[in-house]
Nucleic acid binder design. Structure first.
Lengths: 205, 205
DNA sequence: TGTACATCAGTGAACGCGCGTTCACTGATGTAC
DNA sequence: TGTACATCAGTGAACGCGCGTTCACTGATGTAC
């Protein structure tokens, strides 16, 4: 209550509202998931957060900054979930890459709005060095696992190429599955089998 | 000039303007490529086509129908280009699948607006049975080639699975390449090599 | 502990804007005789 | 070939709407003494 002197910077934003910044990011996320990236409006987010339409401008420069902040937060969760998915799987096994792929797709289906906002491009101006850095960090996780699988020391050109192939695959898979084309294209596809199969094919010498 | 009696139904729309329907579709395409799917407006298209803002409603029910018509037209071109890319490549060769993949990616990079509008989803209401049918037809091309490569008779579950894997791959590749992540992820990737490599890996027994 | 002051998160009203769509119209073209 | 009529592609003005952003403000909170 009356403790000051030192302050937790994470709570610094909590003044009147509790933490409007976080509240607006959450509202943004929910609206983007609900109505799609195009359907999102600052006014809607304010309505959802229960503040006036001018309030966000105390925390974000403009609409675009709100979206970027939201996507950054989602990307962080995505990265954490991928790391968590590795737990308990033996080092150097292709199963680790299968797990990463599964989690990648799973996130894309759980939060398609965030996923598409991040990768769907064309939401002009949503380019930010922080977003790119976060993406590269996530890709780094994959590269490390690929290197361990094929027994290379460090990130060689070969590791990079194979990692890129796996990424392209799960990336496309995410879009296609969300678009519900899977069922239409001949339903009886086993996602687990396909993920394991592609990992083995791409990582075999 | 004064020839009537019989009429070419393809030119039937050419009354006053020449063919405003086609003109508006072309304007739509150019605007979507230029400003992205979100940036497109009926007013802009009218400006570009040189007609009043009310004119489109003589040819399309609403904005969405304009977009759908444009994407359908682009999908048709995409399909034709893919078929053309097979010419001169021996039947049953994985090179045919490499060629299809290359053309798929190439189209996505040539017309990213159309590509994203078709597959990026989330442009609410842009669902149309004709669009889905066109997509399945294109996928059929791939399946036919896969079947020939692995020597199966007709479209078996295995053919379907492998075709799906290849599609996912080039689909993701298209998005990633457009997002310019390729250069960032370690530049020296040879697209031709990767396409040939993945086709071989996915089609090997 | 109590008071005076500074800070700044959130308000509410207003703005100018471009949008999608409608309406009654007009005028060029095709057709019947 | 010429005239009267029907058609319907395209007009231009108008509409109501929700948007992103601004502004001067207010009032709760933290701080200094």
């Amino acid at each position: 209550m009356a403790e000051s002197a030192e302050e937790n910077p994470l709570q610094k934003a909590a003044y009147h509202h509790g933490d409007l910044r976080a509240g607006l990011i959450e509202a943004t996320r929910r609206l983007v998931e609900e109505k799609g990236p195009d359907g999102f409006s600052v006014s809607d987010a304010c309505r959802l957060a229960g503040v006036s339409t001018a309030a966000p401008y105390k925390h974000f420069k403009n609409k675009n900054e709100m979206l970027i902040a939201m996507v950054l937060e989602g990307t962080e969760r995505h990265r954490a979930d991928m790391l968590a998915s590795l737990e308990g799987i033996p080092e150097g096994s292709t199963l680790r890459l299968k797990a990463l792929g599964r989690e990648y797709v799973s996130f894309a289906l759980r939060e398609p709005g965030v996923f598409r906002l991040k990768f769907g491009g064309f939401t002009d101006g949503l380019e930010d060095p922080r977003l790119q850095a976060a993406g590269e960090e996530t890709f780094g996780i994959v590269l490390r696992e690929v290197a361990k699988c094929i027994g290379d020391n460090g990130i060689t050109a070969d590791v990079r190429r194979r990692g890129f192939m796996l990424w392209s695959f799960v990336h496309g898979l995410s879009f296609i599955l969300y678009d519900k084309k899977l069922a239409d294209m001949g339903g009886d596809l086993d996602l687990d089998f396909i993920l394991a199969d592609i990992a083995e094919r791409v990582l075999s010498r």
